[in-house]
Structure formats: structure tokens, C-alpha cells
Design a protein around this nucleic acid. Sequence first.
DNA 1: GTCTATACTGCGATAGAC
DNA 2: GTCTATCGCAGTATAGAC
Lengths: 221, 221
Amino acid sequence: MKSSARGRRSSATRTARNPEATKTQILDAAEEEFARYGLAGARTEPIAANTGVTKAMIHYYFGTKEELYQAVLKRQAALFLSAVEQVDVSDLSPEAALRKFLRLAVDYENTQPYHGKVLLHEAMTNEGKYFKLTGWEVPIGLGAAVLQRGVDEGCFRPLDPWLTMVHIMGVMSFYFNAANNLKQLEPLSDCQSPEAIEAFAESAIAFVLAGVLKQPGESAS
Amino acid sequence: MKSSARGRRSSATRTARNPEATKTQILDAAEEEFARYGLAGARTEPIAANTGVTKAMIHYYFGTKEELYQAVLKRQAALFLSAVEQVDVSDLSPEAALRKFLRLAVDYENTQPYHGKVLLHEAMTNEGKYFKLTGWEVPIGLGAAVLQRGVDEGCFRPLDPWLTMVHIMGVMSFYFNAANNLKQLEPLSDCQSPEAIEAFAESAIAFVLAGVLKQPGESAS
DNA sequence: GTCTATACTGCGATAGAC
DNA sequence: GTCTATCGCAGTATAGAC
């Protein structure tokens, strides 16, 4: 049952006695392991093996497995929030702002494929115990504010901004989280290629925009 | 870390020497455990404890943990396909047919809360190895056919029916799968109450319909 | 059919050498 | 800072009594 994910050596060659590099490599391997198995299901052994160090090093740098998990969540939060902060949306139309956020969502799933999976495992296997560490209140709040602004300005149909944010997160994340199932359906067997992901991005963005934009003849709320 | 989910006795009182009842109870407890932890993370101990039997009984009836997992997937598939088969959509308009499917999706997540979570874990922790056992090609294919029919008849905008089915599955499942995270956001703290779920259902159905329906002035494909 | 007891391996964590 | 060795418990699975 253990697949290629376990026991494989990390691509980055280890440099002996380089604390910062070692910590980073442990966090990289841990993030991958937690993304697949969640806190409870993750094993420290493959994390150590993929890093190229022994299990003892993990405990030396991070303490218990649970503390390592929290460290992964915190590093993800810092990286993600810095990406979100770089997006200034204040002088864009609600539609343009939403487009920008949706693009960021797809790009982030692509460049940080473990981020969303760790978050989902946090909800499913860990009951959201450490959700606060992920910093996700910020982007969700920003997104909801954009939606509310669109409703107020009359370019979006009347909608609940928080629930709609949840719908949008569902659209943007499910394709990636369920990819291993989807690829076994004939028309989606190629779903992990760059071309397929770009096709998904365009389809998803069009779907979400159609879902929130007010139709021409529709009356104001 | 082990929360209330583990070690709790099943609500159904056990009846000694009733093979079918025992098998059913083991499958019930196993489904809950696999829904939370996936195949790799699930433990047979809490399954036995929640059933009220010993671990030995699990192996007596189902063999290995992995075979038990397959049995859970197969039972879910049979139940789900019988529910899907009871929906006849052939003489409904595409919009009415889609509405009917979306309602079924919400109701099914409600009455079978572990179904979708097991399926998602199958993708995330098990690489979709046993996805074929779930029978999901059928409902996804039916849904895609309805979407295609809507495009052909001109009531839905031009869209990729398979990708759009994926978007829809994302909308309908994410709320439930991420509930433990979402409930920690102030406006969604109540997200698991029946009233909140009904509000989600209406919002999600409106969102999806808006996402696929052709706008009045829009030209045909 | 169900239980107790146990074999055996996996795993988290620590001690102590280098 | 990193490794080897090991402790002790948790976990899957089986043997055998009832």
C-alpha cells in the first residue's frame, strides 16, 4: 500500500550541518506527508527518509509530531498571507477583483499543491483544531468583502457573500483534491497535465463569474 | 488527540450471535472511521470498540483492514446507485433535471455524511486505487449528459459538461467536508445546524444554476 | 460466533556516542 | 548537529478456547 510517496529520497541533496536547510527540508517532507495522510495518519519515518536524516533529527528540531504539524501549518500561513497581501484589489471593479482572486487560487494550487490538502485534512481528520493557525480568515474575509461590494454596486446578483465564498472555494479546490479519483474517468484521465489544468482554470473562472454576475434584465435587490 | 469519535460505543445495542447484524454494525463503525482517517490512518481498534465486538471479529468477517475498506466502498456504492436509479430525469427540462440532482446531492450528504468523505480520502490518501469500486462513473456520466442536453437545447451556456460536473461536485461537497474549519469563522459558526444546511442548499443551488444557465441575451453556441 | 491471549511489527520518542 | 541504539506502547493479525 505504501506508494512512491514513502521512502523516496528528497530531490534536494542534503548538506551536512546546515541547520536552516535541514529544518526547511524536514518541513518540506512533512508537508507532503501531512497533505496525504493528515496529522493522525502521517508517519515520521517517511518524513525522515525523504529528508535524508534520521527520525531523531525531527524531534531535535521540532519536538513531537504534533508540534511539527503545527510548524507546517504556520509556515504555510506565512507564505500564503504574503501572497495574498501582494494582491491589491481596492481600485478594481468587483468583477475584476474576483477574477484576480480566482486566478491566484488556481496558481496557488499549482505552485503549492500541498497547501489545500493539508487544510482539508485539518478539517476532516483533526476537526479543525488548528485551523486558526492557517490564517485563512483573512483571505476569506477579503473575498466576502469583494462579493458584498459587488452586490452593493449592483453588478453581482443578491447573494450571501460568506456562503458564496464557500461555493467558490469548493470549485477551486475540488478538482485538485479529487484528481486521483477524477483521472480514472475517461474524459478526465489527463486532468493533471498543465493543459488540462489551464482548461480547468478557464472553465472554473467562467463558471464562478456566471454564478455571481447579475443578468442584464435582473432587478436590483 | 483521539477525540470523541474513538472508543465510543455504537448507539445500536448489540445482539449476540446475529451474524448479519454484526457485519452491518462493523461496516457502520468502519465507514465512520475511514471517513475520518482514510484507509492508511484508520485503526481497527476503535472500529471494534464502536461496534461492541473484539478486533478478532473484524478479521473473522472481513479479513484484513484493506478488505474491510473495500467492503465499505462496495456497500456505499450499492446504496448510492440505488438512490440514483430511483431518479428519473428523462422527461424533465435540463434545468429541472439539474435541480433534482442538486437536491439529491444535498440530501445525500445529509443522510449519508460519511459517503463523500470516504470518497475524498480515497483520492487523497489512497491515490484513487479503489475508486472504481464506488460506482461514481454512473452518476457523473448522467450529470454530464444532462448538462450536454442543456447546452444542445440552448438553455445552458456553452460549457464543458465534464469539467462543469466537477465544479458542481466541488460546490456540493466542500461545505460538508470543510465544515470543521468553516465553523470557526464567525459568520459560519452555526454551519452544521439544519437551518444553516438548508440555507446552504438554497444558496448552492442558486449559484450552480446561475453558473450554467444561459443569460437571456446570450447568443447560441 | 465470539472471546482471550499472544505473536509480531510499526511507530513515536529518548539516551548517549561522536 | 547528526547518528545509532533502544525503550515502550500501539497496531494488525492469528491461534485456540468456549
